[in-house]
Nucleic acid binder design. Structure first.
Length: 293
DNA sequence: CCGCGGGCCTGAGAGC
DNA sequence: TGCTCTCAGGCCCGCG
C-alpha cells in the first residue's frame, strides 16, 4: 500500500489523536508481524505520552516521553484507523463498504483522550519496533535510507551523483531507498511519466561525464516533488488497502497518468500512444513508450 | 555491484 | 457456487 504520500497522510491523521496524548493501554492481538514484536513492546508503551509524531521515508516515528521512539512501517497492506470515541463513530467514516472488518487489527492503542487507534494489516508485512532515541541513528532500518524527496538535500546534483555510474535502470534506481527514500512503484511510474523519461533508461544518464546533473535529472527531481505533493494533498492513492485514518479513501488514484492504466490512451495532449506495462525487477512498470524516452 | 527469483502473507478478481 | 490462478502501494535474502 503505502508510499510516502500515504504514510504522510496517515501521519497527519494520527496527529490529532496521538500527539501530546498519553497511551493508557496497548493491546497486541498478534505479535507476529513482518518481524515479531519485542517481548516488552506493550510494557514500554503503556502509560507513555507521545510527544511528537514524525516520518522518515515510509516509516512513522512516534516520540515518547520515556526517551523511546516507536518506529512503524505499514508494509503493503497496513493502515491505521482512529476512532475518536472508541466505537468507530468518526463523522463521515462509514461511507464505504470495504475493509470494515476489524479482524486484522493487530495492535490497538487506547489513549487517555478517549481515542482508540488500531493498526490493521491483513498481510502482516508491516511491523513496529521500539528504539531508544539515542540508538536511532544506528538503527539498521533507517541507517541506509537516502534523502527525503521533499527535503532540501534532494536535488538534481545529489540525484545525479547517486546515479553516476549506475548500470541499472532508472526505475530500479528510484525504487532503491538508498538513492532516495519514500518512493514506491506507483510514484516512480508517475514521476517518470511526468518527466518524460523511460523507465528503461540507464540511471547513469542523469549525470554527464563530470558527474553534473543533466536536464533529465532536473526534470525528474521536479516531477518527483510535484507528484508527491499532489498525492499528499489528495490524501494518497487508494487502490486496495489504503485508507485515511478516518476510513475515507485517498483520491490520487484518479490522477494517475500511467499506473494501473495498461491499454488505456496516453493522456499527454497530442499523444496517440497507449499505456504499456511490462515487468521490471519483478514489478509492473506502466509507461507510455511514445512520450517517455 | 547487478539482476533475478523466491519468500514473507492475505484477499480480490478473473476465468472456468 | 467454488475452485484455481494471478496479482498487489514493500522489502529482504541468497544466488550466479
Amino acid at each position: 500500500m503505502p508510499e510516502l504520500p500515504e504514510v504522510e497522510t496517515v501521519r497527519r491523521g494520527l496527529i490529532p489523536a496521538m500527539e501530546g496524548a498519553r497511551i493508557v493501554r496497548v493491546t497486541a492481538h498478534r505479535g507476529d508481524l513482518r518481524f515479531p514484536l519485542q517481548q516488552d513492546f506493550a510494557a514500554r508503551l503503556d502509560g507513555r505520552k507521545v510527544t511528537g509524531l514524525g516520518r522518515r521515508a515510509k516509516y512513522l516515528l512516534a516520540d515518547l516521553d520515556s526517551g523511546d521512539v516507536l518506529l512503524m512501517h505499514l508494509g503493503m497492506s497496513g493502515s491505521f484507523r482512529v476512532m475518536l470515541d472508541g466505537h468507530g463513530k468518526t463523522p463521515g467514516a462509514f461511507h464505504h463498504r470495504r475493509n470494515e472488518s476489524r479482524t486484522h487489527d493487530h495492535v490497538v492503542f487506547e489513549m487517555e483522550n478517549g481515542a482508540v487507534i488500531a493498526f490493521n494489516d491483513p498481510r502482516r508485512f508491516g511491523y513496529m519496533k521500539i528504539v531508544a532515541r539515542a540508538d536511532l541513528e544506528g538503527e539498521a532500518f533507517l541507517k541506509a535510507l537516502g534523502p527525503e524527496p521533499l527535503g532540501n538535500a534532494f536535488d538534481a546534483a545529489m540525484l545525479a551523483q547517486a546515479c553516476k555510474g549506475k548500470k541499472t535502470s532508472l526505475k530500479a534506481a528510484l525504487l532503491d531507498q538508498r538513492v532516495v527514500a519514500g518512493l514506491g512503484n506507483i510514484y516512480v511510474c508517475e514521476a517518470l511519466f511526468r518527466s518524460r523519461l523511460s523507465p528503461k533508461r540507464q540511471a547513469s544518464t542523469l549525470a554527464n561525464r563530470s558527474g553534473a546533473p543533466t536536464e533529465h535529472a532536473v526534470r525528474l527531481v521536479s516531477a518527483i516533488r510535484t507528484v508527491l505533493n499532489a498525492a499528499i494533498e489528495a490524501g494518497g492513492s487508494s487502490l486496495r488497502d489504503h485508507r485515511q485514518t478516518s476510513g475515507e479513501l485517498g483520491y490520487f488514484q484518479h490522477s494517475f497518468q500511467v499506473y494501473d492504466r495498461e491499454g488505456e490512451p496516453c493522456r499527454t495532449r497530442g499523444c496517440r500512444g497507449t499505456v504499456k506495462r511490462f515487468t521490471q525487477n519483478g514489478r509492473s512498470t506502466f509507461w507510455c513508450p511514445s512520450c517517455q524516452k
